[in-house]
Amino acid sequence: MCTTCGCGTDHVHIDGVGHPLARAAQAPLTGVERFAAVPIAGSGETDSSFGRIGVHAHGTPAARIVQVERDLLAANDSWARLNRDHFAATGTLCLNLVSSPGSGKTTLLVRTVAEIATRRPVSVIEGDQQTSNDADRIRATGVPAVQVNTGRGCHLEAPMVAKALEALPLAGGGVLFVENVGNLVCPALFDLGEAHKVAILSVTEGEDKPLKYPDMFRAADLVLLNKTDLLPFLDFDVDLCEANARRVNPSVEVLRVSARSGEGFDAWLAWIERRVAALHPAADAGRGEARP
């Protein structure tokens, strides 16, 4: 645990839906679970993508230099690949929602899942340091949700999502939203296995946030500019904010929405539907074209 800011990842708890994980409150994810490579089924070996470790001795006789060449995020990324395989096998579109605290992420999500639930399966993994408030808000809509409490951790990691999925069966052809811990810095680096990161920025924040937090806006494929119903009361320059997002990430898409009024939701829901359809091209082609 870091004694400067209190950040650390030694107290991760994951609540189940109806059937809590056997290893719930008293058993946080261990270092072996978080930092070890995903085992390859049946082989008893770990993911060989880390490469073979070569040994060569030089320097002082007492010390041996061992070549490692291992990515710091390799363990996380191997878990992310496992999650991605699971999403592919179940035909699930997974979106990782990232933002600073207070951008209206949960309110936006509540409205979004209520809309999507009328047409296809939807589920949610909620990440927060403490409390199950957000998962409770999602479950109140009738949509299944699992809360992951990261303790002092400032972001979700792929093995936490893998654990949460044990308590969250995915129905085929659905959408899974992962609401990350409110933080515009750390979640940028950690692949959870999602198809896209969606950054949410509210108009009560600064237009220059994409420039201040470029890692996150570069990692995102879509930016939702939320709380547009408040624009008449603010000096926020929407065009400047969009231009700043494109400076950091020229290919990013930007949609203006209000989770309160529903403005812009048609475009947001259509964006999601296009991605769901892309996961099932065969079914879509079958519907769209008359076959001889």
Binding site: M1, C2, T4, C5, C7, G8, T9, G31, R34, F35, L72, L73, G153, C154, H155, E157, V185, C186, L189, F190
Partner: peptide, 8 residues
């Protein structure tokens, strides 16, 4: 502060 995760 993802540096803690990276350090671990």
């Amino acid at each position: 502060m993802h540096e803690m995760s990276l350090a671990e």
